[in-house]
Amino acid sequence: MESLSNKKKVLEVKPLNFLERAYLPAIAGGLATTMKHFFKKPVTISYPEEKREYSENFRGMHSLKRDENGKERCTACGLCALSCPAEAITMTAAERQPGEEHLYREEKYAAVYEINMLRCIFCGLCEEACPKEAIYLDGDHVPADYLRKDFIYGKDKLVEAPLNQ
């Protein structure tokens, strides 16, 4: 029957000729191939000493941003938690008290902001959802740890370091 794709190729099994049966030419060819690799530059990256560069749009650990005056941008609107497909983000909102204007940009802020790094899939939907440009996945890898509870990162690990003026 004619094949539909016209790509059918009939293979015929030819008996090996003498040189092929002697294996030695094939072995010499193999040795030549490995010798070519012997002089190639190794592809290894000696990890702790040298690190591979991340791509420009690499999504790593989250950071909660501050504005140009060093105030926290997050207003605890909850859009990030809503957008999160892995339900990794939880937060508790609080009202800014008089005298805290230098800490929080707007009247409402996140008193507790937690991301479960074991749930997070680093999709970046939270930074897309954020109307205040408060969260970015611009960090490094999330490091390993021993206990599950230690993977729930609070504000102490997420908020950017304060500006020192």
């Binding site: 490995t34 690799h37 012997f38 530059k41 290894t44 000696s46």
Partner: peptide, 13 residues
């Protein structure tokens, strides 16, 4: 070492 060089690696260092 030789194995590493043949496989484009560095080997024990």
């Amino acid at each position: 070492k030789v194995a590493a060089f043949f496989q484009d690696r560095i080997g024990p260092n």
